[in-house]
Design a protein around this nucleic acid. Structure first.
Lengths: 361, 361
DNA sequence: TTGAAAGCGCTAACAC
DNA sequence: GTGTTAGCGCTTTCAA
């Protein structure tokens, strides 16, 4: 196996260049305030010795790591099966890289891992955390709060909502789930459909709950009330979409439209509809949510869906965090238990959604 | 935004418990050699203050991080689209977690990121690295070697092979790509097929090159020579598989079997065969590679394929690395440029493959 | 068994 | 401009 190598220190570089450690440090960190010939000598010494600063030592004094953790509260299998995460990560990755921060992805396979992750965060390996896919009863937010790491959430965190305990300082980025859902259902109504079903996501996630609310808003508005049998809970996966669609056809064979909580779910629903001999959109119209292009465009028929800019959400999460971090650097260090700084950068950012019409509705 | 919090130090805990820092340190790190009543006092103080050790400080002296980096030399989109990585990561993750090591996933979107990753590794954030999906001309292995971080590769690294410069100490885990490919092609021959095509992976990766070699071995053995038009290079993706299959049908409409370099490629090929009106396996038999169960079993028809235990490969990579690390700890520190320790734990581990017969061939 | 003290490699005041 | 020096928070001899 490639072996560990003992690396040269600042001291060694200083000796070789015939200067003090401080001077080397200055050159290594930008080099202003060092006369050129000296700086050049130092640079050569760095080069010759293959010097790389020891981050542990540096972090110990600067309290900075130039690294940000991304925590996804889902098992790997789901993380990797759902393009949603890939897109969000790409946005995050781009933004972090642009600001010379390293992305550290922490995977969690279950509850036990949450403790490990919290320890990692509290251990001061990173300057902040981006956390997403939270579920209602997740212990993670509490653990993270205890860890005292600046955090931005992806998707509105559901914990403590409407309670006085709700942390007003919590930052998150989300899309207009409820508004998007309304647009989808309104579109189906405009198409003349009346038996509009909804296959939800996991209702312990606010995104799924909000989309359900949007569905109900419009159904109640227009039809007065809605048949509860038209709503089936699912889990944002294609397989779940299949199961839910079967259930739906069983309960309400007269269903003439389906609003699926995300595109993957819609994919499963389309498959079952096809199997059952129903034509889309003629017999049953289908609308998804997300607009994950590779999925929606290759669906049969191409999927009408509610678009949200997932990559942009990721980018914004990262930006919000980095901004908060650099602001924080100019302020005195926060004490344990101190309230979040009021007026801290845009606590919640809600991105708009757009209905994208394709062939399925 | 959730704000940073200044954390209590060892010092604070010591003061609270009325003992020395050394004693607290002992208790925190296992606690042997401390009398029970004292230890208990310390534990209570730790609890009350919510003390978590500062890893930077600890690493500075121990030179350990209990963290391992996983580097995947592919753009995110590919990483997340291919279940292969998810499986391997799961194996790695399990093994690391079992040994209280944190997995740090470093994503690379392009060459520029390689330098960043190398810096990160050299900066001493992790004890070792697991690297996979290398391409022939990748600068990464060189950079990593310079970084002086113990590394285990996933898949045989292609660089320097057959040259005196080849590092004999390099550790890697792979499956028997060539043998597996031979089995696949032999199976197709046994089925009576003679116009057997091969859709390769990216040939700058050894796994793809080895599978092509295996294909050629058998074709040459049995048929004397093989029609070069029957080989099309592709890229391990379903879309690539589609393109390649179209090309193949165009060149050799009489093709009666396809050995695809992986399951995703086979999936694309199946789709095009269906479109072209050919029946599988009646007209054209198809064999894949990997046996990614969700893919192979849901393919139409279910895919005959060469199974490799991907999760196990991941687990082994991690085990090899951790073992090397703990061995290294008992030895004097390696000097820069020192050769890898000979007889270091099993330099190469090659896992066997099995042909899994399903409906497609 | 416990404590005192040295020092890991670095940055940041503060002198010069 | 450049060097000197005092820590950052922790582990680990070494003495007591």
């Amino acid at each position: 196996m490639t072996e560990a190598v003992s690396r040269p220190t600042l001291e060694a570089v200083a000796a070789r260049a015939g200067v003090s450690r401080a001077t080397v440090s200055r050159v290594v960190n930008g080099g202003d305030g060092v006369r050129e010939p000296l700086a050049e000598r130092v640079r050569r010494a760095v080069e010759e010795l293959g010097y790389v600063p020891n981050q542990a030592a540096r972090s110990l004094v600067t309290r900075r790591h130039d690294a940000v953790a991304v925590v996804i509260a889902e098992p790997e299998t789901k993380v990797f099966a759902d393009p949603f995460f890939a897109l969000q990560l790409r946005g995050i990755s781009k933004e972090l890289t642009a600001h010379d921060n390293q992305l550290v992805l922490l995977l969690t396979e279950g509850r036990a891992d949450h403790v490990r992750v919290a320890r990692y965060l509290a251990g001061g390996h990173v300057d902040g955390a981006l956390v997403f896919s939270l579920h209602l009863d997740d212990p993670l937010p509490g653990l993270i709060q205890d860890a005292g790491v600046p955090t931005v959430f992806g998707g509105r965190p559901g914990w403590g909502e409407d309670t006085p305990a709700a942390d007003p300082g919590v930052a998150y980025v989300d899309c207009d789930n409820r508004g998007g859902a309304r647009a989808a259902v309104r579109h189906l109504l405009d198409l003349g459909r009346r038996r509009i079903a909804h296959i939800t996501g996991p209702l312990d996630q606010t995104s799924a709950a909000d989309r359900l609310d949007g569905y109900r808003d419009v159904m109640a508005d227009v039809l007065g009330e809605s048949d509860p049998r038209l709503v089936v809970e699912s889990d944002f996966t294609p397989a779940g979409g299949e199961r839910a669609m079967r259930e739906l056809l069983d309960r309400c064979p007269d269903v003439d439209a389906v609003f699926a909580a995300n595109d993957l779910t819609a994919l499963g629903a389309l498959r079952v509809l096809r199997e059952s001999g129903r034509r889309v959109p003629d017999d049953v119209a289908v609308v998804g949510f997300d607009d994950m292009v590779p999925v929606t465009e290759q669906a049969e028929p191409p999927l009408t869906t509610v678009r949200q800019d997932i990559e942009e959400m990721g980018r914004l999460m990262a930006r919000l965090l980095l901004q908060g971090l650099s602001d924080g650097r100019h302020r005195p260090r926060t004490l344990p238990g101190a309230p979040a700084v009021p007026g801290s950068p845009g606590t919640a950012v809600i991105l708009p959604t757009t209905l994208i019409r394709r062939a399925s509705a």
